[in-house]
Nucleic acid binder design. Structure first.
Lengths: 130, 130
DNA sequence: TGACACCTTCTACCGGAGTAGTAGAATTAA
DNA sequence: TTAATTCTACTACTCCGGTAGAAGGTGTCA
């Protein structure tokens, strides 16, 4: 099971900053998160160390500062976390998850037709290659 | 924010047993979980105490044993957890979540048409009552 | 009535997330 | 040169999930 990465809330928030800006120092991450969450400089730094130990970010020194960058793609994290939730909540049943999403949230007409188009496109792509 | 319940993996697994069987003793929960997870009796018992403290289960004594039952509905938990993930991962954008699901998982033809039917049904339900 | 089996309760421990203070190095300003 | 600023490194602490041993209560049955 390589490349599966569960990330907690703050960790994910930090990663999202890195994904957006390619690279960032502790101060820059902190700046980007300010407003939603006002955290101490050291808190961000600590989290980045933990993320690095986890192998999902990397850093290089530039002068006195460390510049961090993400080592994994948003897609990997999303896949892991969504798949995991579908597994835990719906026993891996994708349609059940979709049904829930459609039932519980108020989707607009426009979104519905966009989804329909998406499915049609997907149907064309899906050859009988199972 | 009442009625929002985040549950971790084991907690959710235990709740699912309770939802299926309406009521269960510690031993029964343990039995139901055996195979996937072989846990000590006391582990389940401890988790149930924690879940009770959290207000999501309840118990009554019958003879020497406690019989537990769920106090919340599966739907409440699913809503909370799905909504939360969509928020954290896709900034609350439902369509983005759906797109991801369609792109990343290998959906079969059959599932696709079932989804299409689902959307059509939803479209009929959705009056312009926004 | 004593031995055993079954149950809950209490307590404890580990690890990870989150939060941050403090120390010490380095760079800049005065 | 000294003082202030700005970083990282180290440490620690709380909370929670998960896991389970030890202890103590209670029922059963020969």
């Amino acid at each position: 099971m390589a490349g599966t990465h569960q990330l907690a809330t703050l960790q994910l928030a930090i990663m999202q900053v890195l994904w957006r800006s390619k690279e960032a120092t502790v101060a820059e991450v902190r700046e980007a998160l300010a407003g939603d969450r006002d955290l101490a400089h050291t808190t961000i730094a600590t989290m980045l160390v933990k993320l690095e130990r986890k192998g999902v970010v990397d850093h290089r020194a530039e002068g006195r500062a460390y510049i961090y960058r993400a080592l994994i793609e948003p897609q990997q994290v999303k896949s892991t976390m969504v798949t995991d939730l579908v597994e835990r909540l719906f026993g891996g049943n994708l349609t059940a998850m979709m049904t829930h999403l459609l039932d519980e949230s108020d989707v607009t007409r426009e979104e519905l037709s966009r989804l329909k188009a998406l499915i049609s496109r997907k149907e064309k792509e899906t050859h009988d290659d199972v």
